[in-house]
Design a protein around this nucleic acid. Structure first.
Length: 1016
RNA sequence: GCAGAAGUGGUGGAAUUGGUAGACACGUUGGACUUAAAAUCCAAUGGCCAUUAUGGCCGUGCGGGUUCAAGUCCCGCCUUCUGUACCA
């Protein structure tokens, strides 16, 4: 009988589905284990699996844990809100829901085809109101909560107290500090209701704020920092600009310290933790307040102005020779003197025009201007000039720095550039060339009471002195900023929020979910409102608590109400909202009373193993930890970290092909007559990879004068061009479809030009060969595409689905092969070259059980050798699975099967446990052979074989004998032989004497059980 | 610039606490079986030199060091990838 994977795999996939083999119980006597992979992302028209590396790994682990006797939860669902779906909807006019029943079926089929052991009865879809009801519910809980864990709590509370004291005329006693909620409740009514709302908004865990956001005009939405890559949107690569908007924000900054400390308690990959640490960006230092020396023309009310700064080096305060403010700093306009006003205004305007991207691209240019104002040094009382410069960021710290040129390179460069003095306050350090920023070797000098102190002592001392003056204190600063929580999209969870006189009101929990309304189109409205502005039934009837037609109310937030009907929020929640608690929902997915029952969460606790990509480090994985901590504080979950262990799976990469377009604005050449730029727009120029690389080797941004190109263009345009300039930075690689490329990477230019998707883009294109010659019908020049390995993506035309492998070799082969490719966490290009290896392994495995005459497993007792093979395999495979080293256990199986084949083993005692070992990796073939062996039950829960040391005990060891560390030969010796005897025997042997050639060894090293080394 | 990870045959990749480098596969070459092909099986396969068998030298990005012994530990570099970026 032959190994027929087609029939076998179909048979068992049906069996598993019918018998619900992998259903998890919410209560069980067995120990629990919860394995989860990160949500898949549906794309475009449907769902597609891509390469299921992470799924296979988690599935192997889940199956292994079942064999170990665990009650395993291994659920799967859909993260069905997403920008790609919406973009597709906008293009096609179809509804953005990707979770249509048809799509779900396709998706399930694709996953089932690979043999995953999911508990499908627990499916969760983020776009399902039954689920997003709870996302809205959490939002309301966040709105109704104060932050109480901020590291700078004291500071924030004192700010709040100030409001109470000045406006509410309340005398706050210090004991209240620890219980802000209580304190608020008691004196709350003394505020006007309007002011109450304003104060509330400022101190809630989620709040409305006028924030400067990353606005992407092309996508019509706001993007989070982690959705922007190199200044352009991650999806689509559109430009992003800064814009002020009223947005919902999540006060993740209140959890900064706990998010940082929590990293110590979880078993996550170190690089990923490091990324989160950097993102949180804790720095310890001091805040220092400088008083602006008043000048006659200063505006901005009475009293003196103060500029406070954050510094990590308060010890260098005597080295301050100027102050620098961000151009956006609010005091700039007030303190600038009339003589400098024009210059300052011009500078502010110029920097505002520069996009974030430009500012990032050129960090080397030093710019700045003097404001004419001075502040007083807190200790020396000397005047210090105040400058503005765009190297100071408005969004970090206070947007102002005390500049210490001798101790900070940026300050140093700035001072050098503008001829500001650079006082040296370090003992024995030369600062004529560069700043001295080495904290650890600092000894302070020229600094009054700090002289002779090191960094640590000086910092302590200076903070004490600043406190005495009331001009500073120790302070911890975090880079982590609050997360913007609204999106101007249609396809996301609606907010359970309506507005009364412009103030947001939460809809009562009893009336959730607030479902997405129907809209005509998914684009923003003509007045620039989010797509929900197109809805006709989208207003809140506060008396009857339901969504009603908005005929009766104006959509503007600030409009007076009509008949108790109020406008609803038009923004929707971002993609990460739904995924921030979904892992807990799986524990009790069909609960209508609560997001999950306490019984369920107390049984499952948290995710034991979470598998997913490291690209979510500063997004999903940080937000989820934040929400989990919030839920923990509310007493809703027992653990304040949602995933005990996390492993990153790498990605299967695709090989993309490129052509290199020289963009029209790169041409600054002179000519007579009509505009050449227009000609080039009509005739895009594509240069070859070789040419591109050559040009790229030249210094960046330099204009390239290229004779070859010039003569070619002369030929094309039939006119005399004087010169051709190309800026090397303006040649863009473009992806091309694989179907236009032959085996030797040669481009089919005619095919490409006719491609419908590109339209006219390529129609008149000019291609330049490696030999810098124009390609046309009459010559044999060829265009060779560039190749690079990248993330698979539809837009890169490099997606290779594993489906074909499944069809040709079966799911078991695919599972084994994806694991065999290499370590799980590694990124690797997809390459099917070695697939025959694992497939023939499966065939060999089959042959251990079957030959031409049929089933051949017998009850004969196994040989010692076979027992040894089995048990060494058990040991290795168990270790490998526990270390997630799946690639090496595949090798181990191959070795075992090769050995057992050589041994002609037919013993049930060996072949039965072997199947259980292999079943997590290749479940279909294992299940089939298990049945043939006479079992009616699925192999899925058969107990894992127990390793027995006694089968591996050896009496002899084949010792490597080395001379000066080089292995020369081996020698079989009894393991119980002691050191002296080994030495004697080895030295006495003929081969040793031959090696020594009569010399006496200086030293003989014997490590019993390991090695013998003779030093001669 | 900073942080993290990595660098081993023609290729993917193995190698416990330092202890026989290249497991297991792919590919290649030769052979068996076939009219032939496929499939299957056997053998060889890091490089160089030698060959009558036994052999010898060099080899884990580069240069040093520690050690009886280094892919592994230490110091100094180079390259690649990932993240982050004027963070005071």
């Amino acid at each position: 009988m032959k190994y027929d994977f087609n029939t076998i795999e179909k048979k068992w996939q049906e069996y598993w589905a019918k018998n619900q083999t992998f259903k998890a119980e919410n209560q069980s006597d067995k120990p629990k284990y919860y394995v989860l992979d990160m949500f898949p992302y549906p794309s475009g028209a449907g769902l597609h699996v891509g390469h299921p590396l992470g799924y296979i790994a988690s599935d192997i682990y889940a199956r292994y844990k079942r064999h170990q006797g665990f009650n395993v939860l291994h659920p799967q669902g859909y993260d069905s809100f997403g920008l790609p779906a919406e973009q597709y909807a906008i293009q096609t006019g179809q509804h953005p829901a990707v979770t249509t029943e048809e799509n779900i079926k396709t998706y399930r089929r694709q996953l089932d085809q690979i043999g995953f052991s999911f508990d499908w009865s627990r499916e969760v879809r983020t776009s399902d109101p039954k689920y997003y009801k709870w996302t809205q519910w959490i939002f309301i809980q966040l709105f109704n909560s104060w932050y109480n864990n901020s590291a700078n709590k004291a500071e924030d509370i004192s700010e709040l107290i100030k409001i109470f004291e000045t406006e509410g005329n309340i005398n706050v006693n210090a004991a209240c500090d620890d219980d802000i909620e209580l304190f608020m409740a008691e004196d709350w009514n003394r505020f006007s209701s309007e002011r109450q709302q304003q104060i509330l908004l400022q101190y809630r865990l989620t709040y409305l704020a006028e924030t400067e956001v990353n606005w992407c005009p092309a996508l019509g939405t706001v993007l989070a920092n982690d959705e922007i890559v190199n200044g352009v949107s991650e999806r689509g690569g559109h430009p992003v600009i800064r814009k002020k908007m009223t947005q919902w924000s999540m006060r993740i900054s209140a959890y900064a310290e706990r998010l940082l400390q929590g990293l110590h308690t979880i078993d996550w990959p170190e690089p990923l933790k490091e990324m989160q640490r950097n993102w949180i960006g804790k720095s310890v230092g001091a805040s220092v307040t400088f008083t602006v020396i008043p000048h006659v023309t200063m505006s901005g009310g009475e009293g003196s102005h103060h500029i406070s700064v954050f510094t990590t080096r308060p010890d260098t305060i005597f080295g301050v020779s100027f102050m620098t403010l961000a151009p956006e700093h609010e005091l700039v306009s007030q303190i600038t003197t009339p003589e400098h006003k024009a210059e300052v205004d011009a500078y502010i305007e110029a920097t505002a025009k520069r996009s974030e991207r430009d500012r990032m691209a050129d960090v080397k240019t030093i710019t700045g201007v003097f404001t004419g104002a001075y502040v007083e040094h807190p200790f020396t009382k000397e005047p210090i000039p105040v400058w503005i410069g765009d190297y100071v960021l408005a969004g970090y710290g206070t947007g102002a720095v005390m500049s210490v040129p001798c101790g900070d390179q940026r300050d140093y460069d700035f001072a050098k550039h503008f001829n500001i003095s650079i006082p040296n306050i370090f003992e024995g350090v030369d600062i004529s060339e560069e700043a001295f920023a080495d904290k650890d070797n600092t000894i302070i000098a020229n600094s009054d009471f700090l002289n002779g102190l090191n960094y640590k002592d000086a910092t302590k001392k200076v903070i004490e002195e600043l406190e005495k003056l009331g001009q500073g204190q120790g302070k911890t600063n975090y880079r982590l900023r609050d997360a913007v929580f609204s999106r101007q999209r249609y396809w996301g969870e609606p907010f359970p929020v309506y507005y009364v006189n412009g103030m947001p009101q939460m809809i009562d929990e009893a009336y959730l979910p607030i479902e997405l309304p129907e809209v005509e189109k998914y684009l923003p409205t003509e007045t620039g409102e989010p797509p929900l502005g197109n809805a006709t039934v989208w207003a809140w009837d506060a008396e009857n608590n339901k969504v009603v037609s908005n005929d009766l109310c104006h959509s503007e937030r600030n409009e007076e109400s009509h008949n108790g009907i109020y406008p609803l929020e038009l923004n929707t929640m971002p993609g990460w909202a739904g995924s921030s608690q979904y892992f807990n929902r799986y524990m009790d997915p069909h609960n209508d009373e609560a997001i999950f029952s306490q019984e369920a969460i107390n049984y499952w606790q948290q995710v034991d193993l979470y598998i997913g990509g490291s690209e979510h480090a500063t997004g999903h994985l940080l937000y989820s930890r934040f929400w989990q901590k919030f839920m923990f504080d509310k007493g809703l979950v027992p653990c304040d970290e949602f995933a005990k262990k996390l492993i990153n799976q790498g990605m299967i990469l695709g090989t993309s092909a490129f052509v290199y377009r020289v963009s029209p604005n790169s041409f600054g050449f002179d000519t007579k007559g009509e505009k050449i730029i227009d000609l080039i727009k009509k005739h895009p120029i594509f240069i070859s990879k070789i040419l591109f690389d050559e040009l790229n080797k030249l210094p960046e941004s330099i204009k390239v004068f290229n004779e070859d190109l010039k003569s070619m263009l002369n030929e094309v345009f039939e006119r005399k061009l004087v010169r051709v300039d190309i800026k090397t930075t303006e040649i863009q690689p473009l992806h091309v479809k694989v179907k236009y490329i032959n085996a030797s990477d040669e481009l089919d230019i005619d095919g490409l030009k006719k491609d419908e998707e590109f339209g006219e883009d390529f129609e008149n294109a000019i291609f330049v060969s490696d030999n810098s010659r124009l390609i046309h019908k009459d010559n044999n020049e060829k265009y060779i595409v560039g190749r690079d390995v990248e993330k698979m993506s539809k837009s890169k035309y490099n997606v290779v689905n594993p489906d074909a492998i499944c069809e040709q070799y079966g799911a078991d082969s695919l599972r084994l092969y994806e694991m065999f490719l290499g370590p799980l966490e590694q990124y690797k290009p997809w390459n099917t070259a070695g697939i025959t290896g694992v497939h023939s392994f499966l065939k060999k495995l089959w042959k251990l059980y079957f030959d031409d005459n049929g089933f051949k497993v017998t009850d004969t007792s196994p040989t010692k050798e076979s027992l040894k093979t089995l048990h060494k395999t058990i040991k290795k495979v168990q270790e490998d699975i526990e270390n997630f080293s799946f690639n090496t256990s595949v090798s181990t199986f191959m070795i075992a099967v090769n050995e057992l084949t050589t041994q002609k083993c037919t013993s049930k005692t060996i072949l039965e446990p072997l199947l259980i070992l292999i079943s997590p990796y290749a479940p279909h073939i294992a299940e089939e052979l298990w049945q043939v062996l006479g079992y009616n039950e699925s192999i899925a829960t058969a107990p894992f074989p127990v390793f027995d040391e006694k089968h591996l005990v050896e009496s002899t060891k084949n010792y490597p004998i080395s001379f000066n560390g080089k292995m020369r030969f081996t020698m079989e010796l009894p393991l119980d032989m002691d050191k002296e005897e080994i030495e004697k025997t080895v030295l006495a042997s003929e081969k040793t004497q031959e090696q020594l050639q009569g010399r006496t060894p200086k030293k003989v090293i014997v490590v019993p059980g390991k090695i013998v080394n003779i030093v001669g």
